[in-house]
């Protein structure tokens, strides 16, 4: 099958959506820029016209509100926030309006909007160019949240999000943009709420989101060399999330590690841990372990970044201590 990078897959999903559905348009900052969207919107402006790719003033709140209004009145807009940090200026229309809309009007009107937020961190950018805020939005009823980890899902989840019928927050991560993988040429959806088992194993279940899937697979490979067989589950969608898949796996292995490259307190990992503890406590052979960022803003200096961000090595040492295999 054909191979694309993650960023090419995002671009292709936009192109196919724009080509097929006149209700689809994109609004946000950086759509006409050669660098802003990291190549994910490259050339779409000339292919589909600036009427459907609205590169906007620095007005996150109003552009998001506009998109939601357009969605309520029958369009299928995608709002683009080149960094999730900037999206905080647009939380009111997302949380108060889009997420509540269907409910407050008894389902008579809906807001089928996609809000795309990019996690873009590292490189000594510091605290306000770093935040992965999925947990804040996972908290909100009426809002779906997806976090593709592969090129295949980057495309399929964007298409699913646009056609979902309700508001969906689509979070992509710049650290994945150059990952390559098989991506079908057709127009396909990845069902929202379905996890994917990326590796099977009997000793330990690792549930991961977004960029941590890659790290956990690396960790699993290295652990396998030492005889520890991990099952790696790519959550793909964090709201709703695939409880059945996670509980089934955790019940089989008896051990659960959850990896999410975001803050720990009230995070995605906390929610999964709580649910598994509630529903499958008796099947577990030890405590659930979370691998997350520390509860601190992202620092700028390289020495502090090194200590702050997490990768496969954190997963490996957590897994080893869960299995009591730290020293052979």
């Amino acid at each position: 099958m054909r191979t694309l990078t993650y960023v090419q897959a995002i671009r292709e999903a936009h192109a196919q959506l724009l080509a097929r559905d006149p209700r689809v348009f994109v609004i946000g900052q950086g759509l006409w820029s050669p660098w802003y969207a990291g190549g994910s919107m490259q050339g779409l402006e000339t292919e589909f016209g600036r009427d459907r790719l609205l590169d906007s003033p620095v007005s996150e709140n109003a552009t998001t509100g506009l998109a939601i209004g357009a969605a309520i009145s029958g369009m299928h807009p995608i709002v683009f926030h080149p960094r999730m940090d900037f999206m905080l200026l647009a939380v009111d229309p997302v949380v108060n309006q889009a997420a509540n809309w269907s409910y407050i009007f008894g389902g008579r009107t809906k807001a089928p909007v996609v809000i795309r937020a990019v996690v873009n961190r590292g490189g000594e950018q510091g605290a306000q160019h770093a935040q992965a805020l999925q947990a804040m939005f996972m908290h909100v009823p009426g809002l779906k949240v997806v976090m593709p980890a592969t090129p295949h899902d980057a495309k399929g989840l964007l298409i699913a999000a646009v056609n979902d019928g309700g508001p969906v927050l689509y979070i992509d991560d710049r650290w994945l943009y150059n990952e390559a993988g098989e991506v079908p040429e057709d127009f396909y959806s990845v069902p929202i709420g379905e996890a994917a088992r990326r590796r099977s194993g009997r000793d330990l279940t690792i549930v991961a989101t977004s960029v941590m899937v890659k790290e956990c697979l690396r960790a699993a490979e290295s652990l396998a060399e030492r005889g520890i067989e991990c099952e790696v589950i790519d959550l793909r969608s964090i709201k709703p999330w695939d409880e059945r898949c996670v509980i089934e796996s955790a019940s089989k292995t008896g051990r659960l590690l959850v990896a999410d490259a975001a803050w720990r307190t009230c995070g995605v990992a906390a929610e999964i841990a709580a649910t598994v503890a509630e529903k499958a406590f008796c099947r577990l052979r030890g405590p659930i372990v979370r691998v997350t960022l520390p509860d601190a803003p992202a620092p700028s200096s390289r020495s502090l970044e090194q200590a702050y961000f997490i990768d496969a090595t954190y997963v490996i040492s957590a897994a080893e201590s869960m299995l009591g295999a730290r020293e052979e």
Binding site: E124, G126, A127, Q128, H129, P297, P299, S300, S301, L304
Partner: peptide, 30 residues
Amino acid sequence: GKAAGCAGGRGGSMHICAPEVGLLGTVPLV
């Protein structure tokens, strides 16, 4: 990105301060 920096290396170019002369903070969120 050094410890002797005006923000102890936490801020980098985009988050700087010099409260001793009244610069209470600069941040990149427009």
